[in-house]
């Protein structure tokens, strides 16, 4: 079960990579906010599942979530200002 669920996470990460790669090459689909949300969704999957933060104390989980939310928000604001 453990292996199966992490294999599903890997497949989801690979799929998200292919989708963002395709969107990156298309002028109409390459929307910075959407691309950034996909990228930080991927890092969240890595932090929660691969780094096993889902089994860690709450403080570690909050730190991981805070990093993603702060970085993603700051980048979306800066990209929308450009």
């Amino acid at each position: 079960m453990f292996l199966q669920s992490n294999t599903a996470i890997w497949a989801l990460l690979a799929l998200a990579t292919v989708v963002s790669w395709f969107m990156g090459g298309d002028a109409t689909l390459n929307i910075p906010a959407v691309m950034l949300l996909i990228a930080f969704f991927k890092t969240r999957l890595v932090i929660i599942h691969f780094m096993e933060v889902k089994h860690a104390p709450l403080a570690l989980r909050l730190a991981g979530e805070a990093w993603g939310i702060i970085c993603c928000t700051a980048l979306i604001v800066l990209y929308s200002m450009a």
């Binding site: 390459n30 950034l36 930080f40 780094m51």
Partner: peptide, 26 residues
């Protein structure tokens, strides 16, 4: 071993953002 694994996953997640910023997002 868990510490080493954690470090390696960090190398992976930092690249995910670098790839998006440097290569993809126009």
């Amino acid at each position: 071993l868990e510490s080493g694994a954690t470090y390696w996953h960090m190398v992976d997640l930092l690249w995910i953002i670098l790839f998006s910023l440097l290569y993809l997002i126009k």
